[in-house]
């Protein structure tokens, strides 16, 4: 059941995670995003690349931001976009994932963008639909376009990811953003430090190549070129993972004081939506080091680039 070994020549059919992707292919996606950013700067922000294709935004879990970003990306590529939100659909009437996907596929959908609360659901959509699938977040497993836009933002700043150190601080345990970055960034030559309270930092993640773990935020950011704060789900308090939000903020908040320990030109990232003054201080979010809005803009370009890569020039 493991993925076939990556070869630079093989063009993956899906973006579920990075397992069957080569660094060369991923770099091509980043390179192509430069072009997409130029498109977004034009008065007419549209290219005909996906004309005639129907892309289904299948969101089995709510997400306004990611859905909007993908929807705009697909529209700017001239695709028709079908938005499927589980909350207001047959899924709430008990229809199975397989039945839902088969019905959507019968509408002649050409590709899926899938968000689901369960890890692996995007894989199931790929299996049941036979169509290209872009994973827009499956449970705590993967959010590959987020990791690509993070990589792109770091590269934009420093010219390359080679030898760069990225600290990711927060609720790593429940974070698909952390997992996807921990998978992607080392493939592109960067080093990843995952940091959080021990209860939210699974020790087994240390098995990933190029990834180290620490519960000490100062140690995490020392020498870091980019520091990413993860969203802390306030619901997690019910799980007993933390003593209090105040204690968390006092220890792990990404703020000016913590950033003073990082490299002098280090930037601040956040996948959004932010809990201001919890995992990130307002000053850090809005300050000169912040690239948070740049991430949002880059996200659209990256998603356009991924759509192009998966859907154009394929029979």
């Amino acid at each position: 059941m493991t993925a076939a070994p990556a070869s630079p020549s093989a063009r993956p059919r899906h973006l579920l995670d990075f397992q069957d992707w080569s660094p060369e292919r991923l770099t091509a996606i980043l390179d192509n995003a430069d072009t997409m950013l130029q498109v977004l700067d034009r008065p007419v922000k549209k290219v005909p690349a996906l004309q005639g294709l129907t892309v289904c935004n299948a969101f089995f879990e709510n997400s306004t931001r990611t859905r909007t970003s993908f929807e705009l990306a697909a529209r700017r590529m001239s695709a028709d976009v079908l938005t499927f939100a589980a909350g207001s659909s047959s899924v709430s009437k008990g229809e199975s994932l397989r039945d839902t996907v088969e019905v959507l596929t019968a509408y002649k959908v050409d590709a899926y963008i899938v968000r689901h609360h369960a890890a692996g659901a995007a894989h199931l959509v790929a299996r049941y639909s036979g169509k290209p699938v872009i994973n827009a977040g499956d449970g705590r497993r993967a959010h590959p376009t987020q990791a690509l836009l993070d990589a792109y933002t770091v590269r934009q700043e420093f010219g390359s990811l080679e030898g760069k150190r990225v600290a990711i601080i927060g609720d790593v345990r429940h974070s698909r953003v952390a997992r996807s970055n921990a998978e992607l960034l080392p493939m592109l030559g960067a080093e990843v430090v995952l940091c959080g309270p021990a209860t939210l930092l699974p020790s087994d993640l240390a098995a990933l190549p190029g990834v180290t773990l620490t519960s000490d935020p100062k140690e995490a950011v020392r020498g870091a070129h980019a520091v990413m704060a993860l969203r802390l789900q306030k619901e997690r308090m019910g799980g007993g993972f933390l003593g209090s939000l105040q204690e968390y903020a006092d220890t792990y908040q990404v703020n000016e004081a913590l950033m003073a320990e990082a490299e002098s030109g280090a930037i601040v990232l956040h996948p959004g939506p932010m809990n201001r003054d919890l995992e990130i201080s307002g000053e850090a979010a809005d300050g000169a080091r912040s690239r948070i809005l740049q991430q949002v803009e880059n996200g659209q370009a990256i998603r356009m680039s991924v759509l192009y890569h998966l859907l154009v020039g394929r029979d």
Binding site: A119, G120, D138, G139, R140, R141, A142, R176, R179, P202, D204, L205, A207, L208
Partner: peptide, 12 residues
């Protein structure tokens, strides 16, 4: 099972 595989897969 909790272990490196569950962490890699993001499954509880």
């Amino acid at each position: 099972n909790e272990g490196p595989v569950s962490e890699a897969l993001g499954l509880p």
